[in-house]
Nucleic acid binder design. Structure first.
Length: 694
DNA sequence: ATAGGGTTAG
């Protein structure tokens, strides 16, 4: 039965829609809301519906709706009702507009504490911390309102968010005056305030003095330690939290809080956090995101990708932008181009672009998979602007692919766009110069770094410069450069010098570098072959055996080299001397065939070169064929001539495999992109983009 | 009618 009001049905339908909507609307629902015919004529809506619609205005896109509603509420003289006025203030604040909220606030003749609390919170949520504190300080006997247990958490949040320790201390004093020290919410806010102001000791004191603690208290404490770089303390707090019986149980906030402490950590800690994760009854999206990020950042890319798959497929949880930003680096690390592309499609389908973080992550993924054009396409299509990270991504991409001049041009374009380069941008640029052998350019930019941009060079910049000079054959100069560095040279610096000595066959400086390296990191697997070979060549047999002993006594084994290639939707892994593949016989046949042709072209296996990182037992036989060669042969057998061969290797490729790949690319007229632990080698027409230096 | 902690990139 309908009345004569033609909008009665619409009112009913509208009411149903309102009830069905969640409190926070996803963006497409917001658009629906704005286009609703009922809202074009809100005068036909009942008071109750108007108020229900008001509750749904929580997003900037609903601002026009809100303004219409507001004027109708004024027309109906409902705006002076305190609870309605509060709703209007909150809605404006959620839409990012504090001024109209303040107007409502100022227009209320009798403001009780709730008005103050809501107004202060509006300011805090919109980043206007000083406004919030200003209003807070106006409270008091003069205006007839005293701050209460709702006011303090908000006021403290204003201090936490702006790192305002001074204000925080004053508020803490005030908290004590009002006897709210033991309030749970106030205590939690105090912990965060101290932690965010760099005082995790104070935060811990507050925590210890609290009579009630809940999961938020623990999370605030853990986050405090984690954000202040006290990773061990953060883990200790999490462990204590876990042994507390029953309550409080860790929640997704716990996972997010511990995150910074375990982004770069030991595998034992990753295992521990994984246990926490597994024990959580209701893991939300945030927990999955955090766990994926932890794996991805600790070089456990396969685990990151596997967790991502489980989350989507088995748990049916919808990934969001943060999930993608966390899993994309893992795709890059694995050169899982097919998965990376799938994720890119998914991102487009979900209309998550433009999003700078995602676009940067996509660029990085494509660059790491050896797809420079795809990385460039993402860069060119960025609609929401580019930041230093975006530019650094694309500069790195060109740099590692050997296009130093393009990297320099991009760097200049970045400057032209008004952005200021930071430390990492310079690492990227200097490496690009170094990879491309642009000696003078590298020196020039190293100079501008301090002269123009007031950046103090860090150890990684010095390592880049040593690499740059060394590559140019300026070994004496490189050595001098190290000697006058203001920082203590580390293994990267000496490693760069040793690498240069290998390429330029300089024994005397090579031995100096080797001695330093041996002193610094005798056990580091990456250097040990080089070290023992250079000592052997110099006839220093005692040092040879010391290197070997250091290796075995510390129980460190050489990381087994392996090469990954993607064929179809599968990743195939090859190890040294691998005979496990069904096509093994064919692979070795193919390699022998190629070897014959290579020898005709003057190839000799580099097994006796003292300055080369080839192992003793590495002869031409089956047992010692390096994984790169197997992977290349496998791809030659299984793909047509038009297919670009992409290989991912976990170590630095050796000189022998490099020469072999170069010759094979020439003989077979195939393009080969080999990514080793250091950089890309793009073999085309018998030439390598790295200029035979790496 | 009002409150506290936490997640993503080079």
């Amino acid at each position: 039965m309908y009345t004569n009001n033609p909008y009665e049905r619409l009112n009913k339908a509208w009411l149903r829609l309102m009830k069905a909507l969640p409190t926070r609307l996803p963006s497409h629902k917001q658009v629906q809301l704005l286009r609703s015919p009922a809202l074009l004529h809100p005068e036909h809506l009942s008071d109750a519906l108007l108020l229900q619609t008001l509750d749904q205005c929580h997003h900037p896109s609903t601002l026009p709706t809100l303004q219409t509603l507001h004027s109708h509420l004024i027309d109906r003289h409902l705006h002076n009702n305190p609870s309605i006025a509060i709703k209007i203030m909150r809605a404006y604040a959620s839409c990012g507009h504090t001024s109209p909220a303040r107007k409502v606030f100022d227009g209320m003749p009798h403001k009780n504490i709730v008005f103050y609390n809501v107004m202060i919170r509006s300011y805090v949520n919109n980043g206007l911390y000083s406004n919030a504190l200003c209003l807070f300080s106006e409270m008091g006997p003069r205006h007839g309102v005293q701050p209460d247990n709702y006011t303090f958490p908000c006021a403290l949040k204003a201090c936490s968010a702006s790192g305002n320790l001074c204000g925080g201390l004053q508020i803490h004093a005030s908290v004590s005056k009002f006897g709210l020290d033991t309030n749970l919410f106030v205590g939690n806010a105090l912990i965060t305030m101290y932690a965010r102001c760099g005082r995790s000791g104070h935060a811990c004191q507050v925590f210890d003095l609290m009579t009630d603690r809940d999961v938020v208290s623990w999370n605030a404490l853990i986050a405090g330690y984690a954000q202040n770089g006290q990773f061990e303390q953060a883990l200790k707090a999490l462990k204590e939290m876990m042994v507390e019986l029953n309550e409080p149980r860790p929640d997704s906030g716990t996972m997010a809080s511990i995150l910074p402490a375990v982004l770069s950590t030991d595998s034992s800690n990753v295992v521990f956090v994984r246990n926490v994760f597994d024990q959580m009854v209701a893991k939300g999206l945030v927990s999955w995101n955090a766990m994926i990020a932890i794996y991805a950042n600790n070089s456990m890319s396969a685990e990151a990708v596997e967790l991502f798959r489980r989350m989507e497929m088995e748990e049916g949880i919808e990934p969001d932008a943060i999930t993608f930003a966390s899993v994309l680096p893992a795709c890059g690390e694995l050169s899982a181009l097919a998965l990376g592309r799938k994720i890119h499609e998914c991102i487009k389908r979900k209309r998550l672009l433009p999003n700078m973080v995602l676009e940067n992550a996509l660029m990085d993924m494509y660059a790491n998979c050896g797809c420079l054009p795809a990385a460039r396409e993402v860069f060119d299509n960025m609609q929401g602007g580019r930041d230093v990270v975006s530019w650094t991504c694309i500069i790195t991409a060109y740099g590692v692919h050997g296009y130093g001049q393009t990297a320099i041009n991009l760097f200049q374009q970045m400057l032209d766009s008004g952005l200021k380069p930071d430390h990492i941008a310079f690492v990227s640029l200097l490496s690009a110069c170094s990879y491309a052998g642009l000696l003078n350019e590298g020196k020039h930019y190293f100079g501008t770094m301090t002269d123009t941009y007031n950046l103090v060079p860090r150890i990684e910049h010095f390592a880049c410069m040593v690499d740059l000079l060394g590559r140019g054959g300026q070994l004496e100069e490189a050595y001098e450069f190290i000697m006058q560095m203001p920082l203590e040279p580390n293994e990267r610096v000496w490693g760069a010098l040793l690498g240069a000595c290998r390429v330029h066959s300089d024994m005397s400086i090579g031995l100096i570098a080797a001695d330093h390296l041996f002193r610094l990191v005798p056990e580091q697997s990456g250097y040990y072959v080089l070290l023992s070979n250079i000592y052997a060549r110099a006839g220093r047999w005692e040092d040879v055996s010391s290197v070997r002993k250091a290796m075995t006594s510390k129980g460190i084994k050489k990381l087994p080299g392996c090469s990954n290639v993607e064929l179809g939707n599968k990743v195939y892994t090859f190890h040294i001397g691998d005979t496990s593949h069904p096509q093994s016989e064919e692979i070795y046949k193919k390699l022998n065939l190629l070897l014959g042709k290579m020898k005709e072209m003057g190839y000799a296996a580099e097994t006796d070169s003292a300055l080369h990182d080839v192992e003793e037992e590495d002869k031409e036989g089956h047992l010692s064929v390096h994984s790169e060669k197997l992977a290349i042969a496998f791809m030659l057998i299984n793909t047509g001539p038009e297919v670009l061969i992409r290989i991912r290797m976990n170590l630095r490729t050796c000189g022998d495999c490099h020469s072999a790949a170069k010759l094979i690319s020439s003989i077979t007229k195939r393009e080969i992109i080999l990514k080793d632990s250091n950089r890309f080698h793009h073999f085309k027409f018998g030439v390598c983009s790295c200029g035979d230096y790496w």
